[in-house]
Design a protein around this nucleic acid. Structure first.
Length: 580
RNA sequence: GUGCCCAUAGCUCAGCUGGAUAGAGCAUCAGAUUUCUAAUCUGAGGGUCGAAGGUUCGAGUCCUUCUGGGCACGCCA
């Protein structure tokens, strides 16, 4: 990732444009690792001029290199080289230092105002009441929470909404199952798991006795009409469920501005249906009321069932109207699995036909399924992995590793039992969150205990460990009375050092790209590269040894790297221990 | 059947608006710790980028077709 807004890029670009006015946009790319003593910061492919100039790219490369050579001092270049069809460029150290200095207090400064004025309302997590919080729910929760933090860090205003699935025929099913197979004491014993057991039981029994489904539908009609018994049971199920969810959210460090279930929008639905009707969009079909979307290449959107009750789409339409009016967001985002792509396309289209020409402002941020080895996880079949179990196991594994490492540590670095527990908590959580955010969100994730409990390589703990190493360097420097100030800059004498600086300077561009694509994994990869770059530097160079001005500059670089690593991980809700 | 998504090393994945010899991690093997935390780093092996055409000076990337897999397609959410 290159940040083309860096002033040294833009100055170079301006020069090249003046050099050749035909050129539309200058293409830059990261320089490859050539087997040279000194690496390049940037490469310019010269094919882009070949056609208009009617010259082979290698000739153009030579000419451009010669022109740049003459302007070397002015542009702050250290080396210019023409190699085949490319011009490779290396900037002077002071040019990179100047950029570092501009953001030394805040490595993300360059992008802080990038989304100022935006207000996004984002619907994420949104679990179904009366079902345990499975590992699958982590995706929406994690991706959504990360997007919130990313947008906030770019200056946008964020409205976090947890749209609980607390309405619909599933509650008819639950009430039916409760009446047939359950009782109050059973539910009180272990509310969420036993409600879930009833739900699974319903689906088993329904196979044998289809009449149960009719009964479930009836109960939902009653619930929607305000039947007292149905209401009471529903309220109870809802309360005990949310109590359990709250524990998970606290553990993940996720919070919401609004926790409003689908039921909240119940009363708004009639108005939405009326509006749809007044626009002559509604038509009857097989007893139900639908909006025909055939001319948009989609199947019809069901608004009202034959029995008069509403559907998922109806509620989402009413909900969207409410959010647009209440929050007046510049974007209304839904973090929901990709199996609902068609649903959102339909809902957005109906809203558009209703007179809300929002287009790009509605966003469905979709993501892949979490699959177990046995295939898709299904709450209905009961083969679900609980998030709580995953978090617990990860913490246990972390603790186990910490205990092993303790034995090899010198006395003064050992942790107290309380510290071990705290570190295990952060590391376990870091491992799980990062595992989930590492791959591009649209990829399906295959759940594997082995992968999730591996703390080496491209993992959260690796990043946390790198942070700890950086902190350890600073501590050590302090202990050895090494002094440095903000006036000390890295001299970039070794390639590893320069590479690290490049990663720091390009990081803000990655955060912006992540926001634009609603894709946290862009940041995951940038974090891994940042940490990898630092670790290579660390292994190659004895940072605390050497000339005092060199050490001072490097310590300043270490400080900045540490800060950026922490900021980056915070975007994912991953905290860093000071020692581990 | 129709639509959408996916296919890169044994496994999990990067690959930014098309550009140099397709890169990481895991696993395997070989190394590095009297020196700043080895949850690290270095190296090796491992690839017809699912297949075939096309566009282009240039295709993992764009277009078409095909194959394989996933998801969705009216009274669930």
């Amino acid at each position: 990732m290159l940040d083309r807004r860096l002033t040294y890029f833009s100055e170079l670009e301006r020069f090249i444009r003046e050099w050749d006015e035909v050129c539309q946009a200058v293409v830059f790319q990261a320089a490859p690792d050539l087997e040279n003593e000194k690496s390049f910061d940037l490469a310019i492919p010269c094919f882009q001029w070949s056609k208009v100039k009617k010259l082979p790219p290698a000739k153009i490369s030579e000419a451009l290199a010669a022109a740049l050579e003459l302007a070397k001092d002015h542009l702050g270049l250290d080396a210019v080289e023409s190699l085949n069809a490319y011009v490779n460029i290396r900037f002077r150290s002071d040019i990179l230092q100047r950029e570092l200095a501009a953001r030394e207090d805040d490595p993300l400064r360059a992008s802080r105002e990038a989304l100022a004025g935006e207000r996004i309302a984002i619907d994420f997590s949104s679990p179904n009441i009366a079902k345990p919080f499975g590992f699958g729910h982590l995706r929406s929760t994690n991706i959504g929470a990360a997007i919130c933090r990313i947008y906030q860090s770019l200056g946008a205003e964020v409205v976090r909404i947890n749209h609980l699935g607390d309405w619909g025929t599933q509650f008819g099913k639950l009430i039916t199952a409760y009446k047939h197979f359950g009782n109050a004491d059973f539910v009180k014993g272990d509310p969420i798991n036993n409600l879930y057991a009833l739900y699974v039981k319903f689906h088993e029994e329904e196979q044998k006795d289809p009449a149960l489904m009719d009964e479930a539908r009836e109960w939902f009609v009653k619930l929607e009409q305000g039947n007292e018994e149905a209401r009471e049971l529903w309220t109870w199920f809802r309360d005990v469920s949310f109590h359990e969810f709250k524990k998970i959210y606290d553990r993940l460090g996720v919070s919401f501005d609004y926790v409003t279930g689908e039921s909240f929008y119940n009363e708004l639905m009639e108005a939405s249906v009326s509006l749809i009707e007044s626009k002559s969009l509604l038509k009857e079909s097989e007893g139900a009321q639908v909006v025909d979307l055939e001319s948009y290449g989609m199947p019809p959107c069901l608004i009202r069932k034959a029995d008069g009750s509403t559907l998922y789409a109806t509620r989402d339409i009413a909900t969207a109207e409410y959010r647009m009016k209440t929050f007046e967001p510049t974007k209304l985002v839904y973090v929901v699995g990709s199996e609902q792509k068609l649903h959102f396309r339909q809902v957005f289209k109906v809203l558009e036909l209703m007179g809300y020409p929002w287009g790009e402002r509605w966003v469905h941020v979709d993501f892949g399924l979490i699959k177990s080895d046995q295939g898709k996880m299904s709450t209905r079949k009961g083969n679900i992995i609980l998030l709580e179990d995953v978090l617990n196991q990860a913490e246990e594994r972390a603790l186990q590793i910490i205990e092993e490492k303790e034995l090899t540590k010198p006395e003064e670095r050992r942790l107290t039992p309380a510290e071990k527990k705290e570190v295990a908590k952060l590391v376990g959580l870091g491992a799980v969150i990062f595992f989930d955010l590492k791959a591009k969100r649209t990829k399906d994730i295959i759940f594997s205990w082995e992968d999730i409990l591996n703390f080496e390589g491209d993992t959260g703990p690796y990043l946390q460990y790198s942070y700890v190493r950086l902190g350890s360097l600073l501590e050590r420097a302090k202990a050895e009375s090494i002094k440095w100030s903000k006036a000390d800059w890295p001299l970039l004498a070794v390639e590893e050092e320069r590479d690290l600086v490049r990663h720091i300077l390009n990081f803000p561009a990655a955060v912006e790209a992540a926001a634009k694509e609603f894709e946290p994994s862009v940041i995951s990869h940038e974090l891994l590269e940042l940490a990898g770059s630092f670790n290579r530097f660390y292994m190659k160079v004895p940072i605390l040894k050497g000339e005092s001005d060199q050490v001072a500059g490097r310590m300043h670089l270490i400080e900045m790297t540490r800060k950026l690593l922490r900021q980056g991980l915070e975007l994912f809700g991953i905290q860093c221990p000071d020692r581990m």
